[in-house]
Each structure stands twice: as structure tokens, then as C-alpha cells.
């Protein structure tokens, strides 16, 4: 198990390096510098700015400097928010994103796995078809449609929940963003769980368990749940990525000052260091979480562990 874990950790390093280099090169391949659209600056000042941000150095040297900073956990200064470092900006935005993202993920797992399991056990019944119908709709309707429509319905028309964002609004303000963000994941996880549970329940060892006189609840709990969760576990990586993506939209619509807002703002304002920093930060997060998922997979499936 230790060997397996170490192998996974070592395997993740090249991915991380690739991400950093790729993102760095992409940003620096962009035509036009970050300060182009400001009033024409005298060449000396421009040169000064360039020197201050080390933009006058050759690209490989810049890359090495950047990586050196990363090793110390430093993502560099922001081009736009002149007085802030990228680290500070992430520190401001990420807690919001983390709160809605993690809540959405927890909600999605809870509801998705539950609904999927029930649908699998009631396969072919009306309940099954209703759950599956709703989840297909949930998968098909993107966050950018769900979010405004829910705001329109629940906030603007019915006034049940607040539409906008308020720093002091409390839990009620989180409700709509989290549900919006979770819905497609609930749908997907429900379908995945159902399909996987049906597959596991049709396996021979489940028939053996029934032949041993175990009740349905025991069969599902002791024999079926673990293997049925493997595909869901595998989906956690893409799900995390999808929730990060979705949170960009949700933050935009609900006006939450999260990391997504900084990212889009940075992208539209050509704040390259900020955008680069957030990409590197998110990539590291995703890779780390994927690693965790891989290790968990090994814990659940003994055949993977000993390979």
C-alpha cells in the first residue's frame, strides 16, 4: 500500500511540471504585453516596468525565476492590483470558492449516491424512471441556464431567497449558489451510481450473498456498496474540475467575490500573473485531489493495491 501511494505521488510530479510550463508559455506567447493598452508610456518608464517584472529577461530565465518562486510558494505580484501579490488575492477569493465548492460536492455525493442506489434497487419502477428522467435533465441543463432561471424564479419572482450577495447575509445567501452548482453533479453521480450498482448487483458474488440468506440491506451494505462506489470515486477528479468550472459561472451570476471572479477579471484585464497564478493553483489542487482519489481507490480495491 505504501509503495502504491509513493508511486502515485511520484507519478503526479511530471503532470504538475507540465501544467506549470504549459501555462507559463501560453501566457507569455500572448501577443501584446500587459501594459499595452495604457496611455502610451515613455520608453524609459516602460523599460523600468519591464525590468521591475523581469520581462526584459529571456523566457527560460523568467520561467526558472517563476518556478523558483513557486518552490517557496510564491506566485509573484499581480500586474493589475499593483499593491497585492497573487498569493494575497487567492487568499481573499479562495475561501468563498472553497465554501460553495465543498458544500456543493458534499451535497452532490449525498443526494446523488442516495438517489442512484434507490433507483438501482427499484430498477424499472416508476420511481427509477422519475429519478433517471430528472437526472438526464440535470446533466443536460448547464449551470449557466440553471443559475439564472433559479434566480429568476426563486428570488426575483417568488422572493424566497436573496438573489445577490451580501457579506453579512449568512447561510441563506449560500443556498442558491450551492444548489445550482451541485445540481448537474447530483444528476451525473446519480446516473453513475445507478448504473454501477445495477452492474454490481448482477455479479455472481451478489447471487452468492443472497444464497447465503443475507437480506437485501445487508447485501447492499456489506457486499455491493464498496465496489459500486468505485466508478463514483473515479469520477471525483472530473467532478472537482467541473465544480471549479461551474463556480466561475455561479460566482459571476450571484456576484460572489470568489476566485472565479478574480480569474475572469484577470482574464479580461490581461492580468497575466494573476491568471497564471490561479491556473497553477487550481491545477495543483486538482492534481492533489486526483492523487487522493487514486489512493482511496487502492484502499477500496485490493486488486489495484497489490499490483
Amino acid at each position: 500500500m505504501l509503495r502504491y501511494t509513493l508511486l502515485r505521488i511520484v507519478g503526479a510530479i511530471p503532470t504538475l511540471l507540465l501544467v506549470i510550463v504549459l501555462a507559463f508559455l501560453m501566457v507569455h506567447a500572448a501577443p501584446g504585453g500587459p501594459f499595452d493598452d495604457e496611455r502610451a508610456l515613455p520608453p524609459e518608464i516602460e523599460a523600468n516596468i519591464a525590468a521591475a517584472y523581469h520581462l526584459d529577461e529571456p523566457l527560460p530565465k523568467q520561467l526558472l525565476r517563476y518556478m523558483g518562486g513557486l518552490l517557496q510558494g510564491d506566485l509573484g505580484p499581480s500586474y493589475r492590483y499593483r499593491d497585492y501579490s497573487v498569493n494575497e488575492l487567492i487568499g481573499v477569493g479562495f475561501p468563498y470558492s472553497l465554501r460553495i465548492g465543498a458544500s456543493a460536492m458534499a451535497l452532490a455525493l449525498l443526494v446523488g449516491v442516495g438517489a442512484g442506489t434507490i433507483a438501482a434497487l427499484r430498477q424499472g419502477t416508476l420511481l427509477d424512471r422519475v429519478v433517471m428522467g430528472f437526472s438526464m435533465i440535470g446533466i443536460s441543463i448547464p449551470v449557466l441556464v440553471v443559475a439564472p432561471v433559479l434566480v429568476l424564479l426563486l428570488a426575483v419572482k417568488l422572493h424566497w431567497l436573496p438573489a445577490g450577495w451580501s457579506e453579512t447575509g449568512g447561510l441563506r445567501h449560500y443556498l442558491l449558489p450551492v444548489i445550482t452548482l451541485a445540481l448537474p453533479q447530483i444528476a451525473y453521480i446519480a446516473r453513475l451510481t445507478r448504473a454501477s450498482m445495477i452492474d454490481v448487483l448482477s455479479r455472481d458474488f451478489i447471487r452468492t450473498a443472497y444464497a447465503q440468506g443475507l437480506g437485501t440491506a445487508t447485501v447492499v451494505r456489506v457486499h455491493a456498496l464498496k465496489p459500486a462506489m468505485l466508478p463514483v470515486l473515479s469520477y471525483m477528479g472530473p467532478a472537482i474540475a467541473a465544480i471549479l468550472t461551474g463556480s466561475v459561472v455561479v460566482e459571476e451570476i450571484f456576484g460572489i467575490p470568489g476566485l472565479g471572479q478574480f480569474f475572469i477579471g484577470g482574464a479580461l484585464n490581461r492580468d497575466y500573473t494573476l491568471v497564471l497564478g490561479i491556473v497553477v493553483f487550481y491545477a495543483t489542487l486538482i492534481i492533489a485531489l486526483n492523487l487522493l482519489v487514486d489512493i482511496l481507490y487502492g484502499v477500496i480495491d485490493p486488486r489495484v493495491r497489490y499490483r
Binding site: D204, F205, T208, Q212, G213, H223, K226, P227, R303
Partner: peptide, 25 residues
Amino acid sequence: SLNTIRARRIGMVFQDPMQALNPYL
């Protein structure tokens, strides 16, 4: 009521133990 008979009164052995035993337990 079948569950009081299965295993307790009638035991069953299946063909392929690789498939018939739970690989995760």
C-alpha cells in the same frame, strides 16, 4: 422466510469461485 432456509438449511456452491466470491472482501 427464504432467508431462514438459505445457508442455514440449504447451502449452495457455485461454479466459478473467482466470480462467486466477493473480490473486495
